[in-house]
Design a protein around this nucleic acid. Sequence first.
DNA 1: GTTGTAATTGGAATTATTCTAAATTGAGAA
DNA 2: TTCTCAATTTAGAATAATTCCAATTACAAC
Lengths: 143, 143
Amino acid sequence: MNAKVSKSLQNRLNQKLLDKGLRPTKQRSCVYDVLLQKKDHPTADEVLIRVRKKLPSISLATVYNCLETLVDCSLVKQVNMDRSPSRYCPNLTPHAHFRCSQSGRIYDLNLREEEINLLKEFLPSGFNAEHFDLTFSGSATLS
Amino acid sequence: MNAKVSKSLQNRLNQKLLDKGLRPTKQRSCVYDVLLQKKDHPTADEVLIRVRKKLPSISLATVYNCLETLVDCSLVKQVNMDRSPSRYCPNLTPHAHFRCSQSGRIYDLNLREEEINLLKEFLPSGFNAEHFDLTFSGSATLS
DNA sequence: GTTGTAATTGGAATTATTCTAAATTGAGAA
DNA sequence: TTCTCAATTTAGAATAATTCCAATTACAAC
């Protein structure tokens, strides 16, 4: 049931791969699908476990390769916090992260254009940012 | 010449160590001194090289131990970017970082109270941040 | 179908960091 | 001072995440 979260997102993957002269493979498709199905910022190890339910013989090296490809295609973001294992998320809209120290859970905090402009104003002249990374940590008292 | 950047900062180190029941050692003092002398966000390896000019037989493990102690004493901040080796800086005032993609150089961007309050407003209710990390990357056209 | 290149694979290698166990140090007690 | 003992340092082994490598496998174009 529901092998592919969305046909159109898979088409987007295939298009991006084609654009770069890369091949659409079932491994790439499946890794992407896993990220879209449960957007909880899994590590490569966790992705491996989930993908193996569909492709039992996929290797960890391939998972890393696929994740790297997806990042290169700008379909997935790599999220690094401190020196813990990289996590991967398909949320492409500009956002910050919040990590709950208790649960370890990571929340996306979507940012409005206005907020991003505020951030850019932190930069003195002479500094031109192409990219930013904003991570909060503390306790989330969730509803 | 100028072995210790500042006597009073070294006293601060000794006081903090005493407070925690830790011993002031020449290794700790020297590692701290190296960070104060050149505030360019060195990695543990770079700290090792610099400290060895004064203490030729210090080991990398000790450098890591000392750095960890300094971080625990809140005298030094550990700076992590992506998955590259940790860097260390003695700037204790709230600040963001800017990494120049060309040179790899890291700049501190000191933040005013006002700016920090703006950042906190990014958090939806239910999220209580004890800590934040803001890193920009791009090109710095320096003067 | 062939052919050639890209992708996958398992395992080895690498890198940053932490751990371990033995030697050294130093602060306080006697 | 000397003794004692825990803290610290040290070298090297171990670990964890990731990347590399060389051999297969799988496609896409002819």
